[in-house]
């Protein structure tokens, strides 16, 4: 267990260093980790709202198509807000 932790920490340190050396400007702002958390949350929420697990009936097509388009527009607006932020 301890050995695994040590090797994980060593990997993490090496990865941080590798990233810092190659893209130093990416990690110069504290905003980036927050944006990454926001991104993960947004993708999770979007996946739940878009999930489609069954074959739809012709009677549902009209509602399903307009829902798909409006959800897509909503998430595009959310993405743009994320960018502006």
């Amino acid at each position: 267990m301890i050995k695994r932790n040590v090797s994980f920490l060593a990997f993490k340190r090496r990865f941080d260093r590798w990233l810092l050396v190659r893209a130093p400007m990416l990690w110069r702002t504290t905003l980036l980790p927050h944006l990454l958390v926001l991104l993960i949350l947004a993708v999770t929420a979007a996946t739940i709202s878009f999930i489609q697990t069954r074959t739809i009936d012709p009677t549902e097509v009209y509602a399903e198509a307009s829902n798909t388009y409006s959800s897509w527009l909503g998430w595009c607006a959310f993405s743009c807000c994320g960018f502006v932020q």
Partner: peptide
């Protein structure tokens, strides 16, 4: 920096479209 941010931004921008694909596929398979 440009390439890393561009790749991240591209994934961020296309995610809503990508997530809509299964729904469009379900509509197509009526």
């Amino acid at each position: 920096t440009v390439v890393a941010v561009a790749i991240g931004s591209y994934l961020w921008l296309i995610t809503p479209g990508l997530l809509a694909y299964p729904r469009i596929n379900a509509i197509a398979q009526v």
